[in-house]
Computed example of a mutant assay.
Amino acid sequence: MMKPVGRIEGGSASPVLGRPVLDPAKAAWNGGMLLAALAFAGPLFSWSALAMFVGSTYALLLVGHSVGMHRLMIHRTFTCSRPLERALIYAGVLVGVAGPFGIIRIHDTRDWAQRQPACHDFFAHTRTLALDLLWQLAYRFEFERAPTLTIESHWADDPWLRFMERSWRLHQLLPAVPFFLIGGWSWVVWGVCLRVFVSTAGHWTITYFCHNPGPGRWRVHDASVQASNLPGLGLLTYGECWHNNHHAFPESARIGLEPGQADPGWWFVRGLERLGLAHEVGRPRPASSREDLDDLGPGRDAV
C-alpha cells in the first residue's frame, strides 16, 4: 500500500508558537454562504428543497469527504483506479470545505500538532465551541516556526487535482445549474449556500466534540491531544465520530471497530472492495505493532 499522502517534517517547528489570524478568503467564502442562507433560505423554503438539501449534503459528505478525501486521499487506506480516485475526490471538492491540497494541509498540520507533547488551542480545540468555530471558519494559523508539508507526487503531479486546487470554489456552479433548472432559486440557496455552510460548520463541530472531553479506549503515547468516540452518532457522521479509534489506527479504512459502531463510510469502501473496485483495503494493525498505544479497555467512550 502507498505510504501516507501527506508528510510533515517538524524539524525546529513549534506547534505552540504562533497565533490565529484572519483569512479573508476563507472568511468571505464561509461568511458569504452563511449570509445567503440566513437571508434567503427561509423565504425560499420548499419541501422539495429541504429533501434535496438533506440528500445532497449527506451523499457528498459520505462519498466525497469521508471516503474520497479522508480515507482515500489523506490516509490512503485503500487504492483504486485513477478515474475512481478523481471521482471520489471531486465529490469531496463539491462539499465546499477546501481544495484537495488544502484539505491535506489542514488535516496533516493539525494531526502533526496534536501528536506533539503540546500544541496551540487552535489545533487542540480546547476553547469554547463558538470561538473554535470562528477560528476554523474564518482564520488560519500563522506559525512562528512552521513545519514543512510534502504532498506525494501521486497527488501533487496530477493535473486534474492541481486544477481542482486552483478552482475548487467555482465548482459549486456544477450543482447550481441543474438545481436552478429543476427548483429555481430555492434549490440553489438550499442546495449550494446552506449545504456548503452546514457541511463545513458541521465538520468542525463534530471535530470539536471528538476532541472533548478526552480519550476513549485508546491513548496515543506522547500526544497532547487525545480523541473521543461519540456514541450514537455513527450514522449521522458517516462513521467519523469514532475518532478515538481513528487516532489509534489511521491506517484502517474501517473506523467503527467495535460492535454497534455504525460506519457508513466503511460500508461504502467495503462495497467497492466486493465489487473489485477497491484494493489493499487497510485494517487496524496487529497487536504486535501497537507499541505507540495504551489500551485502556472497552467502555471508555465519551457519553
Rank of each mutant, 00 (worst) to 15 (best):
S12C: 03
P15I: 01
N30Y: 13
A39P: 13
M52E: 11
G55W: 07
T57S: 13
S66V: 15
H70N: 11
R71M: 04
L72H: 12
H75S: 06
H75Q: 08
P83G: 05
L88R: 03
A91R: 03
A98I: 05
G99H: 03
F101R: 09
T109K: 14
H120L: 10
F122P: 03
L137K: 08
A138V: 05
Y139R: 03
R140K: 09
E144K: 12
P147V: 01
A156E: 09
A156I: 09
F163A: 13
R169E: 08
L174V: 15
A176Y: 02
V189W: 06
G191F: 05
V192Q: 04
L194W: 10
V196L: 11
V198E: 06
S199G: 11
T200C: 13
H203W: 12
W204F: 15
T205H: 02
C210F: 09
H211L: 03
H211Y: 05
P213D: 05
G232L: 01
G232M: 03
T237I: 02
H246F: 04
R254M: 12
A262M: 10
P264S: 06
R270P: 01
L272H: 11
E273R: 13
E280W: 00
A287V: 07
S289E: 14
R290K: 04
D292S: 07
D294T: 13
L296F: 06
P298R: 07
